[in-house]
Amino acid sequence: MSDRIEVLKTYKTYVGGNFPRTESGRYYKVYDANENILANACQCSRKDVRDAVVEAREAQPDWNNRSAYNRGQILYRIAEMLETRKAQFIEELETIGYKTKKAKAEVEASIDRLIYYAGWSDKYQQVFGTINPVASSHFNFSMPEPMGVVNIWAPEDRPLLGLVSVMAPVIVGGNTCIILASEKYPLSAISFAEVLNSSDVPDGVVNILTGFRDELLEHMTTHKDVNAFFYTDPDIDQEQRKQIDENATLNLKRVRRKPVEDWLSEKAQSPYYITDFQETKTTWHPVGL
């Protein structure tokens, strides 16, 4: 054994392709399974949310303009990068109490989920788009289009798989997002940001914040330049649920509440998670000589 002192990682946030600390300068302690301090995570503020929305909004048109093929490859690239760092993520999950087997299963399922959605990138349009046989002399078709910017609460448990499962269907459809990581276990999310950062995901497409849901709920649900809000925890407090819905009326934000009990199940993935964050655009054009 050498006497070498280990270099510890500072966990920050991921906004616009950078890793800034919260502008508020606040932190909260994250513990491992034995109640030892693991890290000082950023306790993000309203300003952090707003900064992230600016980045996400700016990134959205370009991300949407990428070809579906290209978006699919980028999602696939995330999976490749995650595969090569499997060990790191398994270890990170172990520190918060996962048994090795369970940690391995979660990381592998996360990789597979990314591949699943990567494959959908150029297919959901064909499955869910329609050509409409209107009675008049017009060519008429309806296609899915991304809603825009989506605010997401990553599931509180399954800190990696949950995060990947809510992120992938949102971005594969051309949206950009701001994800609030699991409050109790935020570290996998920030490590995952490092994966995103090395996977050709354009800056600002995925932004990851850490902090307290209670504090950020209002800012994430009232922001008028955000098109949708997505959360999945089955046991959310009724008062909070109501608050989310009420705040969303401000700009008719689409609220998607999809309680998921088991993220490892096949049921936790489907193209309907993609279409939940799509609008339908119908185009008419006259047919004639």
């Binding site: 008429n140 098109n227 008719l252 609008e279 119908t282 185009t283």
Partner: peptide
Amino acid sequence: GVVWSNTYNKFDPTSPFGGYKESGE
């Protein structure tokens, strides 16, 4: 939600209709 190209105010039961943003869900 609807784009009429070189036409306007056309409706048909087979054709989906509805809004983005504050025009509806």
